[in-house]
Amino acid sequence: MTTVKHGFPWNHLIGFVLSILLTLFAVFIAFETDFSKTVIMWVIGTLAIFQALIQLFMFMHITEGKEGMLNVINIIYSIFLALVIVFGSIWVLTSGHSAIH
């Protein structure tokens, strides 16, 4: 991964096309469909996450360099921790007895 690749920048092209597609799709969902507001928010939120991932990998060279893989593992682990702590706590504290009253 440390070697510099020459030749046609396929990664950049694919990333660019995907980003545009995802954006257009989000616009379509938001303006051209009859989903409720919550559904729209969820869908475009999900699309935004995908697009962020594409940017990280295709343009921000997250996997390149000496510690590339480590960065990726780091980010994934941090996200995992944040999700577990936040949603885990909410779930644990709002189900059971707390949910009854």
Binding site: W91, V92, S95, G96, H97, S98, A99
Partner: peptide, 8 residues
């Protein structure tokens, strides 16, 4: 035993 739901 703190009274979580069965699924938790």
């Amino acid at each position: 035993t703190m009274g979580n739901s069965a699924s938790v």
